[in-house]
Computed example of a mutant assay.
Amino acid sequence: MPLYRRIRRPRILIALATAVTGVLAVTLTLALTVTTYDHTSPRAARDKASGSVSGAVDCRKAKCVALTFDGGPSPTTPALLDILKRDHLHATFFVQGKGHIAKYPKILRRIADEGNEIGNHTWNHRILTRIGTDDARQELTRTQDAIERITGTAPVLMRPPQGRTNRKVASICRELGLAQVLWSVTAKDYETTDSALITERVLDQTHRDGIILLHDLHKGTVPAVPGIIRALTQRGYTIVTVSQLLAPARPRPGMVYRP
């Protein structure tokens, strides 16, 4: 019996060591295969930048939050533009090609003419990480070309559909001169028409240097915007575009900005 124990115990230890090694190997393999990309926060980008801020808002001093809208332009967009104009505010619009830019070029031109910022949200809203490099590039270049043709200016910002990005997407964006913009606040306004709920969700999640994601094409969103603006202003926030939030840093092509 003593001899059996002396032989058995090392085998158990070897088996345990082998199992642990296997787990570590799997963990290491998973770590190496996780898609990574360069990212930073608006505050970190500002802290690394030098120089003065052009314009009235310096988010190094002011309590800023960026207001962004995806998926337009749409028939509901003019009402949103009326609200922003009335309150002397500007937002960032990540616009989509098919069914939007192609259908409402005059609304897109108005977005630009009234001083709002325009970003690229692809042509067909395809998930860029799930398609080939050439197709992903086409999703962005087609939209870039349409925006520049209508407004006279090509965007420097893009938002990947569903926020899904990887090194491939980052590489394409570097090539096209596009910085990637994610978000920290989502009202999930695509799943509700309740404007009060949309407002509540935004206010519950908003913090300084945040980026708010809304969709002006959904029924409950535009009616919620006046209340959102009013409440944020009462809480001391200054509502800005994404580029204003980053200043004096400039959007860096390929970089992912997320609060």
Rank of each mutant, 00 (worst) to 15 (best):
H39V: 05
A91Q: 02
L13D: 05
A91S: 03
T77I: 02
G152K: 03
T192C: 04
V222L: 08
L140P: 09
R164C: 06
L89G: 09
L84T: 07
R86F: 05
A112C: 06
P253W: 10
P259S: 05
N120I: 02
Q234D: 14
M158F: 12
R230M: 06
Y237F: 15
A196G: 14
P253H: 09
A15S: 09
G55V: 10
Q144T: 08
R230T: 13
V95F: 12
A66L: 02
R235N: 12
A102K: 14
R174Q: 11
L84S: 06
A231K: 15
R164P: 04
V202H: 13
L157I: 06
D209E: 04
Y237Q: 10
L182Q: 04
L157K: 04
A19Y: 11
V202G: 00
A15G: 12
T27L: 14
L217P: 06
F94I: 00
I7V: 11
R230W: 07
S195N: 07
I12Y: 01
A15Y: 05
L245I: 09
P161K: 03
L176S: 13
A102Q: 15
S195P: 01
Q162I: 09
N116H: 15
I118L: 08
H100A: 14
D216H: 03
G132A: 14
Q234E: 13
K63H: 03
V202D: 01
P161Q: 11
P259T: 01
C173H: 07
G236D: 14
H121F: 13
V53D: 11
R167Q: 12
S41I: 00
Y257A: 08
K219I: 12
F93K: 01
A196T: 15
T33N: 09
K168C: 03
V169Y: 02
D38M: 09
G97W: 09
L80I: 10
P161W: 12
G51M: 11
D204C: 10
S74P: 10
F69T: 02
P160Q: 12
R5S: 11
A66E: 00
L140K: 08
L176D: 13
C173M: 04
I101H: 14
L16W: 00
G97Q: 13
G227A: 15
A15V: 08
A79V: 10
T241Q: 03
G97A: 14
T153S: 15
L84V: 06
M158Q: 09
K219D: 15
